[in-house]
Amino acid sequence: MLNPTITEILLSLMQVSYITLIVLVVSAICGLILGTILTIIVVKKIPVLKQITVTFSSFTRSVPIIIQLFIVFYALPPVIESMGFSTTYITATVASIVALSLYHGGYLVEVFRAAYRALDKGQHEAADSMGYTPIQKFRRITLPQTIPVALPGWGNALIHLIHDTSLVFALGVVDIMGRGQLIAASSYGMNQVKIFLIIAAIYIVLTFLSDAIIRFFEKKNKKFKLDSGLNTKGA
């Protein structure tokens, strides 16, 4: 492709868009699970684990994601090997998913913790006095009221994650950024502006989609926000 048209570039990028999507979706899900577990550790004040979690969360938040990607990329294979597993399946894609999951999880701890804090203390007391078991309390009282408060912060975290998936090409993953650079290279460094404008458009569409999804859930969960202790205007 010496002088590709916009459609050709778009089609070529679409061929690898599944890699971007896999990295994005898998790390979003793993990050969500990790974030939830870590939040429970922090909120329940489990000794030692809590300090580790707080340190970990502060690390992921203060270090640029590109460094985290490189650290995981170079440090993961030796660690896996020392545990006695084969390192053949640790590709750049796997390393970036691991790094982004850790980053997303560490980021979400703060979001979820703040949302949990916003829950009115009376709610806990009421649930306890009604004789709810901890699991019942979590499912019926804590979770439904925490979700609507956490959603905007989570949406922001997702948008950060979408933006950060554009960096995995630095490890050699051929996602839409990697493919875009290959196209630019094969046309002797021409067309970069065209290519990056198209990539920007793809990411803008992704961001707006995730915004729309979050807003849909926000609307759906609005009714639970009644006594969250945060709303001052009344429902």
């Binding site: 948008i159 979408i162 933006h163 950060d164 554009s166 960096l167 950024m177 970069q192 502006v193 990056f196 404008l197 990539i199 920007a200 990411y203 803008i204 569409v205 992704l206 961001t207 707006f208």
Partner: peptide, 19 residues
């Protein structure tokens, strides 16, 4: 603001670098 919210920084840097 809408466009900047949607564009990853690295894409913007490359765009500026080339344009």
């Amino acid at each position: 603001k809408l466009l900047l919210r949607g564009t990853p920084l690295i894409v913007l840097i490359f765009l500026m670098y080339y344009s």
